[in-house]
């Protein structure tokens, strides 16, 4: 008879349960109607089963998003866990869709599910990738835009994990400022 060791069948639990959402820009429907929950997972193996099964961001149509959020937090500014928060935002140029987008997004997911930010990981609410004709965006959302120490630490580590050069700056913006902006740019509360 064959012996199966626990290591061969036990899944590796994650610290958090995560929900992956998909947003499709159908202009005949409302914003919330266009936002769909794909699946939830709480083990490393279930994460990969999902990730290996879905399209990479670079294959999505313009106007689509993926959002990965902790279970119980909706991927919108209005959620109680997000409304005082903000995001580390990375804006990609058009060439980066082929070179960097999928790699950066996977790295972002691995940072989240692996709790890469140590004690500051509790500040993290989720991450979003927006696929847009003018340039794609990836952001990590955190829960409190006043929490400078955690935010800066998360930003520095995130930049390191993405392999960004020291010269490449990324900015952190509050959702309040993003939602009430009049022009096309939002001021950065922090930069790393």
């Amino acid at each position: 008879s064959e012996t199966v060791t626990p290591a061969q069948y036990l899944k590796h639990p994650l610290q958090n349960r995560w929900a992956l959402w998909y947003f499709k820009n159908d202009k005949t429907k409302g914003w919330t109607e266009n936002l769909r929950l794909i699946a939830k997972f709480d083990t490393v193996e279930d994460f990969w089963a999902l990730y290996n099964h879905i399209q990479q961001p670079s294959k999505l149509l313009f106007g689509c998003d993926y959002c990965l959020f902790k279970d119980g937090i909706k991927p919108m500014w209005e959620d109680d866990k997000n409304k005082k928060g903000g995001r580390w935002l990375m804006t990609l140029n058009k060439q980066q869709r082929h070179n960097d987008l999928d790699r950066y997004w996977l790295e972002t997911l691995l940072c989240l599910i692996g709790e890469a930010f140590d004690e500051h990981s509790d500040e993290v609410c989720g991450a979003v990738v927006n696929v847009r004709p003018k340039g794609d965006k990836i952001a990590i959302w955190t829960g409190n835009c006043q929490n400078r120490e955690a935010i800066v630490s998360i930003g520095q580590l995130y930049k390191e994990r993405l392999g960004l050069s020291l010269k490449a700056l990324i900015g952190y913006q509050s959702h309040d400022d993003t939602s009430s902006k009049s022009g096309s740019t939002t001021k950065n509360l922090f930069s790393v």
Partner: peptide, 18 residues
Amino acid sequence: GTRIIYDRKFLMECRHSP
């Protein structure tokens, strides 16, 4: 309590494990 942390290398190794 303790936090369950996985580094990049470990997570990537799990990608194609049965």
